[in-house]
């Protein structure tokens, strides 16, 4: 499990988010929710070791992140970035990059790597995209490939940074359903979102971030009842009871 202990994060020793205590348990989608610029993505990058912490520490299964090699971290936590480069390669080759942390001498991918690629594409719902060039894929299809790349890392934890940006409604819902399914299959999912309504429907746990602090970490209905969202976003959050559970909306 990945744990953040009294962690302050930011750029050039300037903290944007301070004294964060948070963990990402397996079997849960933990959503980091907050307005633009509150430090959600910075927190995620620090948890992955892509940025140095301003203070505090990140623990991977009880061991400090600073003591782990890059490839060791990559075998424990996968990262779906918000923006991706699109090289002119096939989807299969793209997903194969997810096996990079397992690459050893003589620097060639093995049969089990190709099997992992197939499994990952299958669980991301993109098996039919396997041989298609990345540049010919739509935004939604590409997102499936990026997800498959993260899944191919076969990690306990997956971090997703704004995975629904650029997607239409149908694909947004699909991504969120996949996040939930991954958690239900036993993975820890950490997800950054500024889309309040979508995040509240997806999360098992919500961490509300605003004004440089984590305001609250709780289940969605508890968060709703606390009024922390109204304060953080400066809107009035309401909900209606539907067949599939609570649906949230803003006014």
């Amino acid at each position: 499990m990945i744990e953040l202990r009294d962690l302050s994060v930011g750029y050039h020793a300037q903290a944007v988010l301070e004294h964060v205590d948070l963990d990402f348990p397996q079997g849960s989608v933990t959503v980091l929710l907050g307005p633009n610029g509150c430090g959600k993505s910075t927190l995620l990058k620090t948890a992955l070791g892509l940025l140095p912490p301003v203070s505090g520490e990140v623990l991977y299964d009880g061991r400090p992140l600073s003591a782990l090699a890059g490839s060791e971290v990559a075998r424990k936590a996968a990262y779906m970035a918000q923006n991706h480069a699109i090289p002119s390669i096939t989807a299969k080759r793209m997903v194969l990059h997810g096996r990079f942390p397992y690459l050893s001498f003589p620097r060639r991918y093995r049969k089990e790597d190709y099997e992992a690629v197939r499994r990952a594409l299958e669980s991301a719902g993109g098996l039919e995209l396997m041989e298609r060039p990345m540049q010919e894929l739509s935004g939604g299809q590409r997102q499936k490939v990026y997800l498959a790349m993260a899944l191919a890392q076969e990690t306990q934890t997956i971090f997703m940074d704004e995975p629904t940006t650029w997607l239409d409604m149908r694909h947004q819902l699909e991504v969120m359903r996949t996040a939930r399914a991954l958690a239900e299959a036993g993975k820890a999912v950490g997800l950054v979102s500024h889309d309040l309504c979508l995040a509240m429907r997806t999360a098992h746990r919500v961490a509300v971030l605003s004004n440089g602090r984590v305001r609250l970490v709780a289940a969605p209905d508890e968060v709703f009842e606390s009024g922390a969202l109204d304060e953080a976003f400066g809107v009035l959050v309401r909900r209606v009871d539907t067949d599939g559970g609570w649906q949230y909306f803003c006014e």
Binding site: G70, A74, A77, H84, P101, Q153
Partner: peptide, 8 residues
């Protein structure tokens, strides 16, 4: 970022 998250 993606490259470093893959351990490079």
């Amino acid at each position: 970022d993606t490259a470093r998250s893959l351990g490079l």
